[in-house]
Design a protein around this nucleic acid. Structure first.
Lengths: 240, 240
DNA sequence: AAAATACATATTGTCTACATTAAACTTTTA
DNA sequence: TAAAAGTTTAATGTAGACAATATGTATTTT
């Protein structure tokens, strides 16, 4: 048995984050406070705090008197993503190469090992979350509280979009996924060496791979999720 | 009489933001939930939601079982600020010039008019908040949800630091403040014209003015605010 | 006298119950 | 029959009371 030392509230936050990132909770879906409070075994006031925090982190959007909605992804979202991503990724990766501590590099290597395993035999969620964690650690290495907020928001949507890229059933994408994993190894090498310029260049190249994939399979239809509350559609509400 | 249509909670959020930005609540100071709830006439649960939201926005930092602390400013904070600011300001200003709507330009002009008034006869808080609002509107013009979070965090510390620059008693800085206001007019002109390249350049120039000022009067001592709770120092707690 | 422990106090964290608001349904009227 | 108004219902928003945790103080022991 694993005695989870985390508080129920912390578990709730982390689980909701995971469910949003893996699109178990789809973009645009409205959440039911009472239902979530029951699920995570806490009362509504602390759950509402959790939702406020997740709103601050960009996972959900709060509407007054109408509850919390999983952050929608519109056509504009994707366009803005394409504008912001290369800049933020390049900047944070450069800073990571300049500031990374040995302990952080170890952590990044462990994360990459797990990511390789996921690419080999994991499901889409494991892979996408593994990738998110990898880039999140690079963000921590950059150690800049002014860039981190934007990086975190980018990673939310990058991960959600990536669920398609990392789908094991898309066999033809396997080579690209291997390439992405190989680039992760390059990240580690350059960060460990402290080669900031090369790291920044690699970040852009890594981004271009993502960009090409996203453009190839994301159509406006698939990202235009209905924003309104689905009337009576129970399975679109809550976190099962 | 002004019938304030905003909810008490909204007023609370906005007032706390203002107090943090103007350093009425100094960096590092701990907040008392009960006291704040009394002041704003709401109970603790909704106040705790407010604090979570402000934490998400970067105004405060939450410590488990130890309450909320006004976001500290350390030496590292300032170093990171110098790294991130030019990049984010240039990018958002460029996007603003590309995307600004006529209505937004009108809003920006109105803001600039008020800012001029504040420079002429206002106090430090009015000036600093006016400047914050000006750049916040440019951020809205950029209309990019991935860059806005970093911009907002930059503006928090830029405004707090700016309280020194905008102090009316520092007469020798008057010419520099006029220059800053003149640059704001240039921003408006370039954004209205849609000259993205020139706008981005101006953003960097405007930043260099700030940077020079900050470097000239910010010494490590003055930004190293004690992080611990001041024991029994009643006036350092709460929002009077 | 100094350190450690036990106690007291104050603050944070949470829960239940209630108030308020928005949505859905029903009923009435043109 | 269709539209509009009233009513019902279910969700969000809030308050007050209680529980748990941390800090400060006093006491005890070495």
């Amino acid at each position: 048995m694993d005695t989870d030392t985390r508080s129920k509230k912390t578990q709730c936050i982390e689980d909701l984050r995971r469910k949003v990132l893996t699109e178990v909770l789809e973009p645009g879906v409205y959440l039911d406070e009472t239902e979530l409070a029951d699920i995570y075994g806490i009362s509504r006031p602390p759950l509402r705090e959790v939702l406020r925090q997740l709103a601050g982190e960009g996972y959900v959007v709060l509407h007054e008197n109408r509850g919390a909605q999983v952050a929608p992804m519109t056509h504009k979202t994707l366009r803005n993503f394409f504008v912001a991503a290369p800049m933020i990724y390049a900047a944070t990766t450069r800073l990571a190469a300049e500031h990374a501590t040995p302990a952080q590099v170890v952590k990044l290597k462990e994360c990459q090992w797990a990511f390789r395993q996921a690419i080999k035999s994991g499901d889409a969620a494991e892979r996408a979350l593994g990738n998110e964690r990898f880039h999140s650690i690079i963000g921590e290495m950059a150690d800049n509280e002014f860039l981190m907020p934007s990086l975190r928001r980018l990673l939310i949507d990058h991960t959600r979009i990536g669920m398609t890229f990392y789908n094991p059933r898309k066999l033809h994408l396997a080579p690209q996924r291997e390439l992405a994993a190989d680039q992760h190894d390059e990240f580690i090498a350059l960060i460990e060496t402290g080669d900031a310029d090369a790291a920044a260049d690699l970040a852009v190249a890594h981004w271009e791979l993502s960009r090409a994939q996203i453009e190839s399979f994301v159509t406006p239809e698939s990202i235009n999720i209905p924003l309104g509350r689905a009337p009576g559609a129970a399975e679109t509400r809550g976190a099962s």
